[in-house]
C-alpha cells in the first residue's frame, strides 16, 4: 500500500504556477531522491506537502496514510507523521530545544490518544535519540537553532526527526552547507532511523549525499514536472553528464 500518493499536483504562488502536475507514489520502507536544477520546484513540492500557507494548490490530490493530506492543517499533517527537515531551519529565541520538542512530541501523543511523556522520561528518551545521531547533549538545553552553525542546524533537524519518529520524512537539501563529516553524520542518522515502516524523500542537488543514503528511486524534477525516474545509477549518470541530456534529448 502507498504511504504517499501524489496525483497530478499543481500549485502556484502569487499567480505563478510552479508545480505543473506532479505524480509520485511512495511506499513504506522506500527512499526516493528528487533531483533537479535550481528553480525546478523541488522545495516548492516540499512546502506544499507540509502545508505552507503562501502556496495554493490549484489541481490534483495528495493521499497520505489513507487521508486527504490537502484537507489537513500543517500541524495535523505533522501529527499524521509527515516531517519536513527544513532547508533553512528557523531560530526560536528563548525556547529551549528540549522544551520545544517535548511540547511537539506530546502534541503528537495527544493526537494519537497516547499517554503524555513526563519531563524525566522525556529527557532520558531524547538523550538516547541524541546518541543515535551523535548530537551533542549541550544542544538540548540551548534555544532552538539560536546561534547554531549551518551544520548544527541541519543536525538539529535530523535530531528532531529522530524524536518525532515520522512515517514520511522529507529532507529538503539537508546536505547543502554541510562538510563531509557532517554529511556522514546526517546520513548515518537517517540510516539508523530507517526501517520497513517509514519512508524518505531526499531532495538534493548533489549525488554525493546519495553515496551515503542509497535511494531506491531517483526522480528528476524539471520545470514543475517529474521528467525522468530511475534507480540509484541515474544519480551517477547525472553527476557525470549534467541535466542537459535529459532536458534537451535532441542535442
Amino acid at each position: 500500500m502507498n504511504l504517499l500518493k501524489i496525483n497530478n499536483l499543481k500549485a502556484k504562488i502569487n499567480d505563478n504556477e510552479i508545480l505543473h502536475g506532479i505524480n509520485l507514489e511512495v511506499k513504506p520502507g522506500e527512499i526516493h531522491a528528487i533531483m533537479g536544477p535550481n528553480g525546478s520546484g523541488k522545495s516548492t513540492l516540499a512546502s506544499v506537502l507540509a502545508g505552507k500557507s503562501n502556496y495554493e494548490v490549484t489541481e490534483g490530490s495528495v493521499e497520505f496514510n489513507g487521508k486527504d493530506l490537502l484537507e489537513l492543517a500543517p500541524d495535523e499533517r505533522a501529527k499524521e507523521g509527515l516531517f519536513l527537515a527544513f532547508q533553512y531551519p528557523v531560530e526560536i529565541p528563548g525556547v529551549s530545544n528540549v522544551n520545544f520538542l517535548r511540547t511537539a512530541l506530546n502534541e503528537h501523543k495527544k493526537y494519537r490518544g497516547e499517554e503524555l511523556m513526563e519531563a524525566g522520561t522525556f529527557l532520558k528518551f531524547v538523550r538516547e535519540k541524541a546518541k543515535i545521531i551523535q548530537f551533542d547533549n549541550k544542544y538540548l538545553t540551548r534555544p532552538v537553532n539560536e546561534g547554531f552553525s549551518g551544520g548544527e542546524k541541519k543536525k538539529n533537524e535530523i535530531f528532531q526527526m529522530a524524536v518525532l519518529e515520522p512515517k514520511l520524512a522529507i529532507l529538503d537539501e539537508t546536505d547543502s552547507g554541510l562538510d563531509i563529516d557532517a554529511l556522514k553524520i546526517v546520513a548515518d542518522g537517517v540510516n539508523a532511523l530507517r526501517n520497513e515502516n517509514n519512508a524518505y524523500i531526499v531532495i538534493t542537488h548533489y549525488q554525493r549525499l546519495l553515496n551515503y543514503i542509497v535511494p531506491d528511486f531517483v526522480h528528476i524534477l524539471y520545470n514543475g514536472k517529474i521528467i525522468k525516474t530511475g534507480g540509484k545509477e541515474l544519480a551517477l549518470e547525472l553527476e557525470e553528464k549534467g541535466y542537459d541530456w535529459i532536458i534537451n534529448p535532441e542535442n
Binding site: 527544513f86 520545544f100 502534541e107
Partner: peptide, 26 residues
Amino acid sequence: SDDAIFYLNQRGISTEDAVGMIVNGY
C-alpha cells in the same frame, strides 16, 4: 514571522500554541 509559526506547525504545534511559545521565549 510566518516562517517561525510554520516551523512550529510542522512539528505538530498549533498556531495558537506556537505564538504562545514564541512570545514566552521572547
